[in-house]
C-alpha cells in the first residue's frame, strides 16, 4: 500500500523527465556557461584562462562597441516608431471599415507576406536598393533626382537599414493593436459620435488610452527584439562599410565565430541580456498601465 502511494506521487516526476532532460542541457546550462565563461579567455573548445573582468573592461574601452551601441540605439528608436505608428494607423483604418468580410480579407492579405522567408525579404530589399542597378535608383534617375549609394556608403548604410521594409507595416503589430481596438465597447464609439467628437479627439481620449496595454507590449517586444537583432547586418553589410552598421549582436557573432573569442562574445551577450532585463522592468513598472473601462 505504501509502495503504491509512493509510485502514485513519483510517476508525475517521471512524466517530466523528457522535458527537464532537454531543458537542463539546452535550457539552463547555456546561460550559466555564458556567465561563467564571460570571465575567461575562451576559444570555446579547449583553452580557457581566467581573466576576471578583462572581457568587460575590454568592452568598455572598445571603440567599435561605442559605435555599435550608438547604432543600435538609433535602430531601436526607429524600430519602435516604424513598428508601432504605421501599424496603429492601419489598425485604425481596418477598424473604420464596416464590412467584417472586407476587414477579414485585408487582414489575410497583410499577413500573407509572412510565407516568404525573412532572408528572402532581406535579399530582395538589398537587390532593390542596389546603388547601380536597383529599383529605387532607376526610378530616381528616370525623374532626374539624385540617387543614393545605400549600403555602399558609410553615411547612408545605417539609414538604408531604416528605409528597408517601407512602408513598415508590421502585420503582427497590426493584429495585436486591432485586437485591442476591437475589444473597445461599440457604445463608447457611438457616444463619441453623438457628442460630435472628431476622429482625432476620439483617438486621443478613447482609443489610445484603452489600447495602451497593447502598445506597451509592442514596446517591450520591440526593445527585446531590436536590441538583439543583427541578421540584416550579417547578411547585407557584415557591419561595414567602416563599422557604420556594426551592432552589438553582430559584434558578439563575429567575436565568437570569426575570431574564436568566445569568452568576450559571452560577455557581450550577458551585457545585452542585462540591458534587456532592465529595459523590460522599467517598461513594466513605469509605463502607465491600461485604463480599464467600466460600463
Amino acid at each position: 500500500m505504501v509502495g503504491w502511494r509512493n509510485w502514485a506521487g513519483i510517476r508525475y516526476y517521471l512524466y517530466l523527465i523528457p522535458t527537464f532532460a532537454l531543458l537542463v542541457v539546452f535550457g539552463y546550462y547555456p546561460p550559466i556557461s555564458a556567465i561563467y565563461h564571460s570571465f575567461f579567455r575562451w576559444d570555446g573548445i579547449l583553452a580557457s584562462q581566467f581573466i576576471g573582468f578583462g572581457n568587460y573592461v575590454r568592452m568598455l574601452h572598445s571603440g567599435t562597441m561605442a559605435i555599435a551601441a550608438a547604432n543600435i540605439l538609433k535602430l531601436i528608436i526607429w524600430g519602435l516608431l516604424a513598428g508601432i505608428l504605421p501599424a496603429l494607423g492601419v489598425a485604425e483604418l481596418l477598424l473604420s471599415i464596416r464590412s467584417q468580410r472586407a476587414q477579414y480579407w485585408y487582414r489575410i492579405l497583410l499577413v500573407a507576406p509572412i510565407v516568404v522567408p525573412g532572408v528572402v525579404g532581406l535579399l530582395l530589399w538589398e537587390f532593390l536598393m542596389d546603388p547601380n542597378y536597383g529599383f529605387f535608383n532607376t526610378i530616381l534617375a528616370a525623374v532626374h533626382l539624385p540617387t543614393f549609394l545605400f549600403f555602399a556608403s558609410p553615411q547612408q548604410a545605417l539609414y538604408s537599414f531604416m528605409f528597408m521594409g517601407f512602408p513598415w507595416i508590421s502585420a503582427v503589430n497590426v493584429l495585436i493593436l486591432l485586437a485591442g481596438l476591437m475589444n473597445i465597447s461599440r457604445d463608447l464609439f457611438d457616444a463619441c459620435a453623438l457628442d460630435g467628437a472628431t476622429w482625432f479627439q476620439r483617438f486621443v481620449r478613447v482609443d489610445f488610452p484603452l489600447i495602451i496595454g497593447q502598445v506597451k507590449l509592442l514596446i517591450i517586444l520591440g526593445l527585446i527584439g531590436g536590441l538583439q537583432g543583427f541578421t540584416a547586418q550579417l547578411i547585407i553589410t557584415q557591419g561595414g562599410p567602416a563599422f557604420s552598421t556594426e551592432v552589438p549582436g553582430l559584434m558578439m557573432y563575429q567575436s565568437a565565430f570569426t575570431y574564436q573569442q568566445m569568452g568576450y562574445a559571452s560577455a557581450i551577450g550577458l551585457v545585452m541580456f542585462v540591458v534587456i532585463l532592465i529595459l523590460t522592468i522599467i517598461n513594466m513598472k513605469y509605463v502607465r498601465t491600461s485604463v480599464e473601462y467600466q460600463p
Binding site: G9, Y12, Y13, L16, T19, F20, L23, V25, F26, G27, Y28, Y29, P30, P31, S33, A34, H37, G44, I45, I224, Q228, G249, M252, Y253, A256, F257, M262, A265, S266, I268, G269, L270, M272, F273, I276, L277
Partner: peptide
Amino acid sequence: FAGKEVLYYAVIALLMVPGVLTLVPQYAL
C-alpha cells in the same frame, strides 16, 4: 504533486532568456 509550481516557474523562467545569451555557449556545448 509537491513542488509543481516551482518546477513550472523553472520552465517558464526560460522565456526570459534571450537568444544572444545562449548562442555562443550552445555552440560550444
